[in-house]
Every structure is written in C-alpha cells, then in structure tokens.
C-alpha cells in the first residue's frame, strides 16, 4: 500500500539547513494499523506531510497504492489527497460555519459529486462513527469527541487508501481519547488502513507496529512489532 525508499527532505531555517528526513524507508501494507512515533523535531510531521501528499520529498521514492507520487504537481497531489488520503487532525479542523453533514460532504465536493449522492454517503459515514443524531449540528454545538468523530467521518467519506491521523486524541481528555482510539481500532478491523502519528509511546503501543523516528531517521531498523513485544513481555 505504502512503499517509501530512502526519502530525504531538508529545510533552510535562516542560515542553517535542517535535515528533517534523512533517508527514511518504510513499507505499510493494506489493512495495517501502524504508528509513527517520535518527539517533536524528529521529522515526524514532515514524514506525515509527505505520506499525506501535502509535501514532496527532495529525493527518494514514495509509492502510494501502486502510484509513484514523489514528483507530482500541486494539482495532481490535490487529486491524490482527495482520492487516497483521509486526514484526521489534532484540532479537528472542521469548518466552523458548516454543519457536521456539510463538513463530511466536503471531500466529495472537490470530487465533483452531485448533492444527493454526497449527502447519502456522508450520512452513512456519520452513522458509522455514531453521530446519526448530530448531522445538522454546527461544530460549536458538538463536544470534542463528537467533533473528532465528524472529522473521522470526513476522512472516511471518500473511501481513502489510508487514514492519516495526526495526534487525534491530543485535544481530548483521556476517556474521550480512548473512545476515539476504539473507533480507529473498529475501523481497522473493518479493513481501513490507519497511520497514527503521535509523540505518545503508550498510544503507539496500541497499534500493530510502530516506526520510531529520531533526528530524521527511523530508529532500530525501523520495525517495532507491538504485538510481538507484548507477547515477549
């Protein structure tokens, strides 16, 4: 599903050059639930942006669902994001003046789908995340957990190859955060590929396996199979 080979990315911060990613490789197969974990400044966000097709690497290879995406134009990247990626953000990033339903419909608008088809799929997704009774509410009328569910429904609505969740529980209390993680697990069991980006090793440990990033590199050969570690313990 995702195949990344020797990706490099560097930024100029004033006079100094920051190597945000310094030769990262990874493979993620369809249906997996993986975590990318690391402290801030580890290159985690940069990697997430590249996987999410918001950014392109300076060099290296990135193949998403069989399609090399490392060197696409802005328009092509936008299309890939629309078709292949479902974003879930820490701060939800819902449009404040649009209802839950309208927020969920948004990706389909950019796909040019008609209003009726959009509405049907969006309603289905909101039901799937347990918000059938909150469809016409504005984000401001929803709790944090409910907002994140709307965001997840929005990420799912386009039938993406992968859900990319960036600290999805970071703005939520422990209990609500747990509920959101449960939702991800449930979706993953239904076959959705989920990549969780977090600084929290405890959250990462709930996933199938983790990539630990430090200073732009993947630490310890790049593969941590959480289940096997659990088994060893």
């Amino acid at each position: 599903m995702i195949r990344i080979r020797d990706i490099h990315k560097q930024y100029e911060m004033g006079p100094t050059v920051v190597h945000a990613l310094d030769g990262v490789s990874m493979d993620i197969t369809a249906g997996e639930f993986v975590a990318i974990v690391g402290p801030s400044g580890s290159g985690k966000s940069t990697l997430m942006n590249i996987i999410g097709c918001l950014d392109t690497p300076d060099r290296g290879e990135y193949v998403l669902a069989g399609e090399p995406v490392a060197e696409l134009s802005d328009d092509q990247l936008a299309e890939i994001r629309n078709l292949r990626i479902g974003f879930v953000f820490q701060n939800f990033n819902l449009l404040p003046r649009a209802t839950a339903l309208e927020n969920v419909e948004l990706p389909l608008i950019y796909r040019g789908r008609g209003a009726r088809a959009r509405r049907r799929v969006a309603e289905e997704m909101l039901e799937r995340v347990g918000l059938a009774d909150r469809m016409t509410h504005l984000p401001s009328e929803l709790s944090g957990g409910q907002r994140q569910r709307v965001a997840i429904a929005r990420a799912l609505v386009g039938g993406p190859s992968v859900i990319l969740a960036d600290e999805p529980t970071g703005a939520l209390d422990t209990r609500t955060g747990g509920e959101i993680m449960d939702l991800f697990h449930r979706l993953n069991r239904d076959g959705v590929t989920v990549i969780l980006v977090t600084h929290d090793p405890a959250l990462a440990a709930q996933t199938g396996r983790s990539f630990r990033l430090l200073d732009g590199r993947i630490v310890g050969n790049g593969l941590i199979d959480n289940r096997r570690e659990e088994a060893v313990q």
């Binding site: 299309e79 994001r81 990706p107």
Partner: peptide
Amino acid sequence: TREIGVRMALGAKPRH
C-alpha cells in the same frame, strides 16, 4: 487561512 489549508488537505486544487 486555516480553512483554506483544510480544504486543500481534503483535495481542493489551487483553482478551486
């Protein structure tokens, strides 16, 4: 700005 970022993340092209 942030709304624009969200729209772009969801697949809005520059011309949209």
